[in-house]
Simulated scan of single mutants.
Amino acid sequence: MKAAAIQLNSKLDLAKTDKTYYTAPNHPQIVTLPKLTYLAVTDKGSPDSPIFARATEALYKLAYSVKAICKADGCDFTVPKLEGLWWVESEQNALEVPREEWHWKLLIRLPDFAQSDQIEDARRQTIAKK
């Protein structure tokens, strides 16, 4: 969704406008999605670990900083839910591998109108605050 397509002072909610991405059909199917923008952090360890908690907190702080910058520029959005990808680097069943050895990538999707310079400004602001 381009910035020009967003009405000034309206709030984009990707979960409502992109049903293909945010809902699953009753039967498996292959879905082709366009290139999407995410904030992401990748690491290793248990989801109960302090590093996982800090990564989640940092990702949300950055997402809300991007939102504030976009809103100031006239394009507001609802910060989507946190998404996560998990894997192990082992031939074992993932549930048999100790959680401390799990790898993860946490993601928060951004709307198309969030530009790289806005994201970089938000990153600098977020780092400066903490």
Score class of each variant (00 low, 15 high):
Lys2Ser: 06
Lys2Val: 01
Ala3Val: 04
Ala4Asn: 12
Ala5Gln: 11
Ala5Lys: 07
Ala5Leu: 09
Ala5Ser: 11
Asn9Cys: 05
Asn9Ser: 12
Asn9Ile: 03
Ser10Tyr: 06
Lys11Tyr: 08
Lys11Gly: 11
Leu12Ser: 05
Leu14Pro: 02
Ala15Gly: 06
Ala15Tyr: 05
Thr17Phe: 09
Thr17Ile: 11
Asp18Phe: 03
Lys19Tyr: 07
Thr20Phe: 00
Thr20Gln: 09
Tyr22Val: 02
Tyr22Gly: 00
Thr23Val: 07
Pro25Gln: 00
Asn26Ile: 07
Asn26His: 12
His27Trp: 08
His27Phe: 11
Ile30Met: 08
Pro34Met: 09
Thr37Phe: 00
Tyr38Thr: 03
Ala40Asp: 07
Thr42Gly: 15
Gly45Ile: 06
Ser46Cys: 10
Pro50Gly: 05
Pro50Arg: 11
Ile51Gln: 14
Ile51Ser: 15
Ile51Ala: 14
Ala55Pro: 06
Ala55Val: 04
Thr56Gly: 13
Glu57Met: 14
Ala58His: 08
Tyr60Gly: 07
Lys61Glu: 13
Lys61Ala: 15
Ala63Gln: 10
Tyr64Met: 04
Tyr64Trp: 07
Ser65Val: 01
Val66Tyr: 01
Val66Asp: 01
Lys67Thr: 00
Ala68His: 07
Cys70Ile: 03
Asp73Thr: 09
Gly74Arg: 01
Cys75Arg: 04
Cys75Asp: 07
Asp76Pro: 00
Asp76Tyr: 04
Thr78His: 07
Thr78Leu: 09
Pro80Asp: 12
Lys81Trp: 11
Glu83Leu: 15
Gly84Phe: 08
Gly84Ile: 12
Leu85Pro: 00
Leu85Lys: 14
Trp87Met: 00
Trp87Tyr: 02
Val88Glu: 09
Glu89Val: 02
Ser90His: 03
Ser90Gly: 04
Ser90Trp: 00
Glu91Gly: 14
Gln92Met: 03
Asn93Lys: 09
Ala94Tyr: 13
Leu95Ala: 07
Glu96Asn: 12
Glu96Asp: 13
Val97Cys: 14
Val97Ser: 15
Arg99His: 02
Arg99Val: 11
Arg99Phe: 00
Arg99Gln: 12
Trp102Asn: 10
His103Asn: 15
Trp104Arg: 10
Leu110Pro: 04
Asp112Thr: 03
Asp112Leu: 01
Asp112Gly: 05
Phe113Lys: 02
Ser116Pro: 08
Asp117Thr: 12
Glu120Val: 14
Glu120Asn: 13
Asp121Gln: 14
Ala122Leu: 01
Arg123Val: 11
Arg123Ile: 14
Ile127Thr: 10
Ala128Tyr: 08
Lys130Val: 10
Lys130Cys: 06
